[in-house]
């Protein structure tokens, strides 16, 4: 189902990606190195020859109009697309130099290292505590009850939710507000201590105040995590990210420091998009 064809993929880097490699040169170490990735739903190509180097412990934003492939691309980074029947990936994705589509990579183990937060908050219909404990339990990451409780607390603190829920950890997660649910989902993802955190429009269903909470959180989290965030909101990309990648019709058009992307983009398409001429 998944074929990795790096021999032919790497030379074809030249075209679109040349722009990226000239100006997006990464001084910080690269965490995720994608080379010539294409993605197909059945016969439809959703991503075409994407190459990008995502720096470690920074926030990288993916922007672009709906259907441009930014979410699909995000989901290739933890092999979340594997659970959809009939998809196909070509190219390579290296995380810490290891090909995640290689034969020796187990997607289940991979996802412990590459966490994900979804557009629609999706807490389990369990208690607040059990939601955060879930990943620890299934992966056997806590040796004792105290350790489990400690790690749940640490994760809730990291997600800036602890003070709001510490007195009702056994209450149902579904009783929380939308913004709290989303921070709970972030706490749940952090509990298994991933190195990379993928966020798929995490604030798109939230009100401005809850959105601000999430953005502040993203800013804090980058000291420990490599964060990739998909957003349809360009102001959000400008506020939270160090680097921004612009996708259009399944192609990576431009990738650069966020400050440059929004002030002096190289590609005409990027300029038109960030200035709101289409999209």
């Amino acid at each position: 189902m998944t074929t990795v064809d790096s021999d032919t993929a790497i030379p074809s880097l030249a075209g679109v990606a040349s722009l990226v490699s000239e100006r997006g040169t990464v001084e910080t170490p690269t965490k995720v190195d994608v080379r010539g990735l294409s993605f197909y739903y059945g016969d439809m190509r959703a991503l075409e020859d994407v190459s990008i180097q995502i720096p470690e412990k920074q926030v990288t934003a993916f922007i672009g109009p709906s259907g441009c492939g930014k979410s699909t691309f995000l989901r290739t980074l933890n092999r979340m697309n594997d659970i959809i029947p009939g998809v196909r990936v070509t190219g390579t994705v290296l995380i810490d130099g290891k090909d995640i589509y290689g034969a020796s990579t187990d997607p289940v183990t991979l996802r412990q290292h590459v966490g994900m937060v979804f557009q629609k908050s999706n807490p389990f219909p369990k208690s607040i505590f059990e939601n955060v404990a879930y990943g620890l339990r299934i992966n056997g990451l806590a040796a004792s009850k105290t350790e489990l409780a400690d790690r749940v607390e640490t994760s809730l603190r990291a997600a800036a939710l602890w003070d709001e829920v510490k007195d009702r950890l056994s209450a149902s997660a579904l009783a929380l507000s939308g913004g709290q649910q989303q921070r709970l989902c972030i706490a749940r993802a952090l509990a298994v201590e991933p190195e990379v955190l993928l966020m798929d429009e995490p604030a798109s269903a939230l009100d401005p105040i809850a959105t601000q909470h999430i953005e502040e959180l993203v800013f804090q989290l980058k000291t420990n995590y490599t964060i990739v965030i998909v957003t349809h909101n360009m102001q959000q990309a400008a506020r939270v990210s160090d680097r921004t990648a612009f996708f259009w019709l399944g192609k990576l058009i431009e990738f650069d420091l966020t400050s440059r992307m929004f002030t002096a983009p190289t590609a005409k398409l990027t300029e038109d998009y960030v200035t709101g001429r289409f999209g």
Partner: peptide
């Protein structure tokens, strides 16, 4: 059961 719940579990490294 919403697909989001399954995805959440898979994303945490569940089999």
């Amino acid at each position: 059961v919403p697909r989001g719940l399954r995805e959440a579990a898979y994303a945490l490294g569940a089999t």
